[in-house]
Design a protein around this nucleic acid. Sequence first.
DNA 1: TCAAAAGTGTTGTAACTACACCCATGA
DNA 2: TCATGGGTGTAGTTACAACACTTTTGA
Lengths: 243, 243
Amino acid sequence: MSDDDWTPPPVLLAVDLVIFTLRVSALHVLLIERGIEPFQGLWALPGGFLNNDKEDVLSAAHRELKEEANLDASRLHLEQLGAYGAPDRDPRGRVISVAYLAIAPGLPEPLAGTDAARATWTPVPDILDGQIQLAFDHHEIFSDGLERARLKLERSALATAFCRETFTINELQQVYEAVWGLRLDLRNFYRKVQAATGFIVPAGTERRAGKGRPARLFKAGDRTTIHPPLVRPAAATTREENA
Amino acid sequence: MSDDDWTPPPVLLAVDLVIFTLRVSALHVLLIERGIEPFQGLWALPGGFLNNDKEDVLSAAHRELKEEANLDASRLHLEQLGAYGAPDRDPRGRVISVAYLAIAPGLPEPLAGTDAARATWTPVPDILDGQIQLAFDHHEIFSDGLERARLKLERSALATAFCRETFTINELQQVYEAVWGLRLDLRNFYRKVQAATGFIVPAGTERRAGKGRPARLFKAGDRTTIHPPLVRPAAATTREENA
DNA sequence: TCAAAAGTGTTGTAACTACACCCATGA
DNA sequence: TCATGGGTGTAGTTACAACACTTTTGA
């Protein structure tokens, strides 16, 4: 670092969150409707400024997660996406945003009791179609978050973060299908996911869902990386280019 | 974002660079010896503060690249690693650093004419062995940069950024061996690298290097992602755990 | 006993590892 | 003609996609 007498210019630091969840087998992201300028009326990712100059950036992400989505750190994946620092990204001044990717299990009523009443789970395809305009550079942050999630499903146990304590293999497959945006062969999926040692372990019990044979229940294993990886078929990228 | 009357605390924004290159077939990273406190006498990654509040963060990375390593943007890979924002990471105050990963081809005299006379290309194994202490949280940033480079060699054409305009397949293999820290079978490497369409294209000419049959020269192709990927053998992680 | 959902077996193929082998050059 | 580095051929194996098939439940 330079060590002159010259003083570097201060900037404001914000944290933005790309929070994904699965609702009725479809991928959703949490968006907040902006009540004031700039970008009033548009949708934005949840986030906020650093509380004080002693607050850790990761702690600020956890705090916003609690304030805006009523989500606790337990049973939840949180990782940094990167910093977004174009000089004109916020018309109010020089704001650098550190973006985080969060994955939450589907919740019955995700926003009850939250003071962020304007928060809404939004289907990801609606954003990819261009139906929904995002404020600031949040479309870029959202896209980066989606791509990161898609990549990490291949080699990490991230998918279990979308599920509750116990889950069936079919529920896990729905995670992959929703995030990757394509259909998978359930029979091959069964074997691949069980061949990846430490990814999921049997919970011993079963779940009956009305019709058909009951499904075995599993819980997340202790491994965070899985081998062999669940490689995303080439069709995924093709479909992405059409969108 | 919160929109109260309350004003968020300003922070200082720095940029740090993990610059890798290959020198005599070994992976090196650029380090600077700190002349003043804090951490005087220790080694640190090159970097510096934002010049003014209109400077783009990526532009600041390019500027530091020029100032500290005399490297231009052409024929050079530069990507963001992420933000490092622990409250106590810099004893002088609240500094958030945005780290970048840069890959440069091996240069004959990389630092001639630079005002950063204390800059030195340091062998990566020396840092992994713990022989060299880094200032601030720069060891963490360095490790993240190395892991990112190792990962990206598998599925992207990043390796060509270590090479000059034209290169032999053997030179390209030395890149993989140096970054991954292991030996590869040259015969299988030849075919894998040529089977990945668009990764490298023949330059038409040959290079004679004293003894033996002359090697065909190649240049970087137009594809940034390669298929099938060059998967890193499992031995890589095993060896990493020993280090 | 039929529909529906869960789960298993099999076959052909792509891509890999490991290794033997041939080619072109300078000394 | 030999050492040296460049490059190709082949066999056994792993991991996979694409299917047909069996099992267990509720109605």
